[in-house]
């Protein structure tokens, strides 16, 4: 599988990273070189092998369904680049 320049633009859009047009070709080259190296995994027979989902087999822990934290809206927005009255401020989304 080879990544062309259109794919780089599409993936960058999905990742919400603005890529300058002059960097698209370089990025395509870099991604291809990494993906080409990864392709050696196709040699491995994975027939019937389960994908690993946990490093250590333990029973999934469950918390009690109770409030343990909260009531601190100011802490939540403390680091926001723009906030007002404990709300995050974003550019207008709905006309």
């Amino acid at each position: 599988m080879s990544v062309d320049q259109a794919t780089v633009r599409r993936v960058a859009k999905l990742a919400r990273i603005k890529v300058k047009e002059e960097n698209v070709e370089r990025l395509a080259g870099e991604l291809n070189s990494i993906l080409h190296w990864i392709e050696q995994l196709n040699e491995v027979d994975v027939e019937g092998i389960e994908p690993m989902t946990a490093v250590v087999t333990v029973k999934m822990k469950k918390r009690k369904d109770i409030v343990t934290d909260g009531n601190n809206p100011h802490d939540v927005v403390e680091n926001a680049p723009a906030a007002e009255d404990d709300y995050f401020l974003v550019p207008k989304v709905i006309e």
Partner: peptide, 20 residues
């Protein structure tokens, strides 16, 4: 939006893309 760098854009998606 929630923390760190914000670089303004034409709309919210543009702002995300510029910031990242």
């Amino acid at each position: 939006v929630r923390y760190g760098l914000r670089v303004p854009g034409d709309d919210i998606v543009d702002m995300y893309e510029n910031s990242r």
